[in-house]
């Protein structure tokens, strides 16, 4: 099962320059706040898709839920 650290590392590796704070009570549900320059000019939907792209088919599976808040620096 992925840990909060794993999820943080995946997001930061997938989005150059991103900083993620990730918490998880159970390694199934995750809560992430992601700050990235790359979000600039994107809609919320597009920002979330960018983060989701780091996980491909795992969302809804191993990662049951990823609560997400995206921001620009």
């Amino acid at each position: 099962m992925p840990t909060a650290e794993d999820v943080k590392a995946r997001i930061e590796a997938s989005i150059p320059g991103a900083t993620a704070e990730v918490q998880s009570p159970d390694n199934v549900h995750f809560n992430a706040r992601v700050v990235a320059e790359a979000f600039d000019g994107l809609s919320r939907i597009e920002q979330h898709r960018l983060v989701y792209a780091a996980f491909e088919g795992e969302l809804g599976g191993a990662i049951h839920a990823l609560q997400l808040k995206t921001e620009t620096p």
């Binding site: 919320r44 939907i45 979330h48 609560q67 997400l68 808040k69």
Partner: peptide, 11 residues
């Protein structure tokens, strides 16, 4: 598509 739970709650 407007969004899922997080986006709808934020909005």
């Amino acid at each position: 598509l407007v969004g899922g739970c997080d986006i709808v709650t934020e909005m």
